[in-house]
Nucleic acid binder design. Structure first.
Length: 807
RNA sequence: GCGGGUAUGGUGAAACUGGCAGACACGUUGGAUUUAGGUUCCAAUGCCGUGAGGCGUGCAGGUUCAAGUCCUGUUACCCGCACCA
């Protein structure tokens, strides 16, 4: 009989659907396993071949865990708020909810078509009011805890999307999504105080099993540094507070720089002689987009403030103050002391403005030619009481000194900024607060949740930067829940990252209308045992959701500090690069190199597609999509099918294949755990080759093969298992192996002379070194190679090789 | 600039604590079956050389009986962050 993948796959997909095979109950008596993949944004384009790679990988893990006896939660849902849907809706004049539903249906059917073992009874959708009721509820918790606040601030504004972006969403000064120009705009925005959790987000990385590169990226993004804050008096009688990580270089400060947005400038405005010039520079800096600012970063610019000087507290010297956009208002205090001798940026600035460069740490080259920034080897000089100390010792001493004198203190700073949480868009969760003239910002009571989106005529984003909801009087005008007076609703919506910051909690109890999920369900299922997702979310979704989870932990909602026990990531699937034949690059519509999974499944089948995606290369690395490679795995499945028709009798493994069977079980079992799916598949292929050489499989051996194959290619495995053994393969126990039986009775050893292989021989396993050496020395090839030479050394590595060293 | 990563046949790639480099595939070549083949099967396939033999894991050194793997230096490419004081 022919391997009719189309008929087999639709048969089993229907079976799994009708029997709810992969539905899991909250059965608290069983050991649980929570496997999670990132839920997709259901775009209008449907799945592309990149999606199934992580999904198949975790599907393999989930299917294996079920066979190992775990109660497995492997859910799927839709991160469905977002700009593309809204844009599509605007263009085609369809409500975004309808577009979303259509896209979700397409995605769901495509995932079913790939044989993913998701529990479809637990599907969640971030745009469902029953879901976002709890997103809003969490926001109110944050608001009531003082972690959500509204602030007038300079934000990133995408000129194309006409929306505010979080720092994490700005890539190379452009919009992460549309690559449009990002400029700065001063707007009143909702902010979340993720910075309050900076230290915890950093510390608790020690307690989780993430890929090291993921941890490193988060550590760098959080960007903790220790230094000191120091107060400089000014000649106008007030004070200037700066932050430095090099307080040891205080004696080398020859000027100060403050950010163009620094508030002291306004304070000083009528006393400065060159206000026109300063105002012009401020305007210039404000107008620059992030992109321009990065472009310009080689050439330092700035303006000296005319009429004010700072006084260096360690030596009383008066030094000038500049404004320059290389100092950022958002970090530290927005002001620095400049030590050109020991900071590259300060050095460049000093050279340009002809400022003195004083060496205070010796050990480098001439500081007039290059800044000396090495902290490890330097020794203090020209620094009075610090002279002769190492940089580390000097830091300690000066910190003590400034604390004692009351002019400064030790200070920790983070690069992490608070999370800009407002978006001027229609298709997002409404922020459930109102503004009352009397009471200020007031959160809605829980009874008024969910606050749903009103129907509007136009979802168009506006050029003035206001939300499309802002023109809708019926939505805006409401009463204050506190005083009952007139109040206005917030018209901005939440960013897309809101719904995805807690979705893994909702899966544990997706239909609960009393709580976001029951305490018992949360306690049972969390933390997620294994979460796989893209590296691109490391400093976005992954960080945001850790923050929310930690907050919910502090509120007593969840009972573990970290949401994910283990986090891994996958590489991208690359397409052919049309510009460089033989090279590969990101798939994109504009390059016409996108591969559609529907066609692959139609032409080769879902099992082949799954196997190919796993066989293509190292799961963690980017992998090129090469149509030719699909044939190899298709052939493998055809061979499995063909061999099923010629099985020998046998209730146990044959002598010929026993060790091969045990070795393969071990290899496949271990490889799944370490994400080495490619070599797991290779091991099964090699087993087929072994079986061919042994004259085919017997029934016992083939049964095991199907169990190993089931997570990878579940349709063919289910079909053959039912046909041959009359049972369901997914109900079988995972195969076991015996370490002792993995070994063959004899092994081939290589014999080297001076490290070059000259001969080979077979010997019983674990033969001792003396025996091996004496056999090796008798071999004719070895005699020839050692003839007339002196043997200096004989090394034998049991079961591997013998090396004879001669002179 | 800082951080992370990669470099192995014609191609995708394997190689656990240093121990036979190239598993498993793709492709190619030859052969068989077939009216036919985007079928199946068999054989060969790292490079140079007719051969014995030599050379081979980006490059240059080093340690070792033995190095893709360890050490020093160096180049190229990819990804992230980027004036964070």
């Amino acid at each position: 009989m022919k391997y009719d993948f189309a008929a087999i796959e639709s048969k089993w997909q229907t079976y799994w659907d009708e029997h709810r095979t992969f539905h899991v109950e909250n059965d608290f008596t069983k050991p649980k396993y929570y496997a999670l993949v990132e839920f997709p944004y259901p775009s209008g384009d449907g799945l592309h071949v990149g999606h199934p790679r992580p999904y198949t990988a975790m599907d393999i893990v989930a299917r294996k865990r079920r066979m190992q006896g775990y109660n497995v939660l492997f859910p799927m849902g839709w991160d469905a708020f977002g700009l593309p849907t809204e844009n599509y809706a605007i263009k085609n004049k369809i409500h975004p909810a309808i577009v979303t539903e259509r896209n979700v249906n397409r995605f769901r059917s495509q995932l079913k078509m790939l044989g993913m073992s998701f529990d479809w009874q637990r599907e969640v959708n971030t745009t469902d009011p029953n879901y976002f009721k709890w997103t809003q509820w969490i926001f109110l918790k944050l608001f009531n805890a003082g972690l959500a606040y509204k602030k007038e601030m300079n934000v990133n504004w995408c000129t194309q999307c006409k929306v505010v972006l979080a720092n994490e969403e700005v890539v190379n000064g452009t919009c992460e999504r549309c690559h449009g120009e990002v400029i700065h705009k001063v707007k009143n925005q909702w902010m979340l105080k993720i910075t309050d959790y900076a230290q915890k987000l950093l510390d608790d990385l020690d307690s989780v099993d993430y890929f090291e590169k993921i941890k490193t990226a988060q550590v760098n993004w959080i960007g903790r540094s220790t230094g000191a804050e120091v107060t400089f008096k000014t000649t106008l009688g007030d004070e200037l507070l700066i932050y430095t990580t090099r307080p040891d270089t205080l004696f080398g400060a020859t000027y100060m720089v403050i950010s163009p947005e620094h508030p002291l400038i306004d304070t000083w405005s009528d006393k400065l002689g060159n206000m026109d010039e300063i105002r012009a520079y401020q305007a210039e800096a404000a107008r620059k987009s992030d992109f321009d600012r990065t472009e310009m970063n080689k050439d330092k610019t700035g303006v000296k403030l005319d009429g004010v000087m700072a006084v260096n507290p360690v030596n009383g010297r008066e030094i000038p103050i500049f404004i320059s956009d290389y100092v950022l208002m958002g970090y530290g205090t927005g002001a620095i002391m400049a030590v050109p001798a020991h900071d590259t940026r300060d050095w460049e600035f000093a050279k340009k403005f002809n400022l003195p460069i004083i060496e205070v740490v010796k050990g480098g080259e001439d500081v007039q030619k290059e800044a000396f920034t090495d902290c490890a080897t330097g020794v203090l000089t020209n620094s009075d009481f610090l002279d002769g100390l190492s940089v580390e010792d000097a830091k300690v001493k000066i910190k003590g000194w400034i604390t004692e004198k009351g002019i400064g203190r030790e200070k920790v700073n983070f690069k992490l900024r608070d999370w800009v949480f407002s978006r001027q868009r229609y298709w997002g969760e409404p922020i459930p607060v109102v503004y009352c003239e009397k009471c200020g910002w007031v959160g809605l009571p829980e009874s008024e949740l969910p606050l749903t989106l009103p129907d509007v005529e136009s979802y168009m984003p506006t050029d003035n930067g206001e939300s499309p909801l802002s023109t809708l009087e019926s939505f805006i005008n409401t009463t204050c829940p506190k005083c009952g007076g007139a109040a206005k609703r917030e018209t901005d919506t939440m960013p897309q990252w809101a719904g995805s910051s807690w979705y893994f909690l909702r899966y544990t109890d997706p239909t609960n209308d009393k709580e976001l999920a029951s305490k018992e369900a949360l306690k049972y299922w969390l933390p997620v045992d294994w979460y796989n997702g893209g590296m691109e979310h490391t400093t976005l979704h992954l960080l945001y959701s850790r923050f929310w989870h930690k907050f919910l932990y502090d509120e007593g909602i969840v009972s573990c500090k970290e949401p994910y026990a283990k986090r891994t990531s996958h590489g991208m699937i690359l397409g052919k690069d049309p510009q460089n034949p033989g090279k590969f690059c990101k798939m994109s519509k504009s390059l016409h190199n996108v591969v559609n999974p529907d066609e692959v499944v139609r032409d080769f089948g879902a099992d082949t597609m799954r196997l190919y995606e796993m066989f293509v290369g190292d799961f963690e690395k980017a992998a090129p999509w090469q149509e030719e490679g699909i044939k190899g795995v298709k052939r493998f499945l055809e061979r499995v099918w063909g061999m099923s028709e010629n099985l020998k009798d046998g209730d146990e493994y044959s002598d010929a294949l026993r060790s091969a069977m045990h070795k393969t079980i071990k290899k496949v079992s271990e490889n799944i755990e370490s994400l080495k799916f490619n070599t797991a598949i290779a091991a099964m292929m090699a087993l087929l080759n072994d079986a061919d050489n042994a004259g085919g499989f017997n029934r016992a051996e083939f049964r095991t093969l199907l169990i190993l194959l089931n997570p990878f290619a579940p349709h063919i495995a289910s079909e053959l298992f039912e046909k041959l053994y009359g049972e369901m393969v997914h109900e079988q126990k995972w195969a076991e192996y015996d370490e002792a039986l993995c070994a063959d009775s004899t092994v081939e050893l290589a014999v080297q002379v001076n490290g070059k292989v000259k001969a080979r021989f077979n010997a019983p396993v674990d033969s001792d070194s003396e025996t091996l050496i004496s056999i090796a020395l008798e071999l004719p090839e070895v005699q020839k190679a050692t003839d007339g030479k002196t043997i200096i050394k004989k090394i034998a590595v049991p079961n591997k090789l013998v090396n004879i060293v001669v002179k």
